[in-house]
């Protein structure tokens, strides 16, 4: 029942996209997001679509996984689209429904916001689908490192993320186990009204919290007994190194950006 969460779910693979340096991948994703918000004509999205298609094709990511990533944000998407559609003033009125008016500029904005959100989610889920959580946090740590001079705890943040990610599957497994154990004692998690269901969660949540705290304690002891004391002077086994393929990926991304800029500035 918990197995259909895709945001942040990595599919192992060994395509070029999978092998890219996580720092470059994060930067590329960032550039991509800025670019899709820079587009101001529908024709500009052709380049974004082509670019995404290229990434999906090279990484061989099953399209169904990408669609699954879109499912949880459908409500936000619908909300954004309808807010923009009904509450943007200006332009000619196309349709009136009581106090709500659909104008040309509203429709235009709605379409753009919708497309932007969809591309944003596809782009970021491609990042998480092709990058293992560990290398992702590694990349984030490196990118944040320059900011540690101004007090950003880059290493600590990355360590917290790594631990959190590491324990998601463990906690899911634990939840399933405790649920089953309580179901074997006749607990019912599925029927009844909200109050009854919320009460029914107590036998699940209490043991889950206890075991989470126990695990946290054990982990802290294990880390301290191996002399962990934060990020200072820590070396790593796997050093991140920029490869030629990283420059190539960056180049392809820049071409896409240039095409989008060209589309915005010189065509109409």
């Amino acid at each position: 029942m918990f197995r259909n969460i895709t945001i942040g779910q990595y599919i192992p693979g060994d395509s070029v996209v999978h092998k890219l340096d996580p720092r470059i991948k994060i930067i590329i994703t960032f550039i991509f997001i800025v670019a899709i918000f820079f587009i101001n004509k529908l024709s500009g999205y052709i380049f974004a679509v082509l670019y995404l298609y290229l990434v999906i094709a090279i990484s061989k990511t099953p399209f169904s996984y990408i669609l699954k990533g879109l499912r949880p944000v459908i409500i936000i998407l619908l909300l954004t689209v309808s807010l923009n559609m009904f509450f943007t003033p200006g332009g000619t009125v196309l349709y009136t429904l009581g106090p709500l008016k659909v104008t040309t500029s509203g429709l235009r904005l709605a379409v753009f916001m919708g497309l932007r959100l969809i591309f944003l989610i596809i782009g970021t889920s491609l990042l998480t689908l092709t990058t293992s959580p560990i290398s992702l946090t590694d990349g984030i740590e490196h990118i944040l490192k320059p900011f540690s001079r101004i007090g950003v705890p880059a290493h600590e943040l990355a360590m917290m993320m790594t631990i959190a990610l590491r324990f998601i599957p463990t906690l899911i497994e634990e939840t399933e186990k405790i649920m089953k154990a309580q179901m074997a004692r006749g607990a019912d998690f599925e029927s009844g009204n909200i109050v009854k269901r919320a009460k029914g969660l107590v036998p699940l949540l209490v043991p889950l919290f206890i075991s989470a705290f126990r695990r946290a304690d054990e982990l802290a002891v294990a880390m301290e007994s191996r002399c962990y004391r934060g990020g200072q002077n820590r070396t790593r086994m796997k050093q991140l190194k920029i490869q030629p393929r990283d420059y190539e990926a960056l180049a392809v991304t820049l071409i896409m950006v240039l095409l989008i800029v060209w589309n915005r500035v010189w065509t109409w």
Partner: peptide, 10 residues
Amino acid sequence: VFQYPEYQLF
């Protein structure tokens, strides 16, 4: 009775 059943006490 599951493995480590004491973890289900609440």
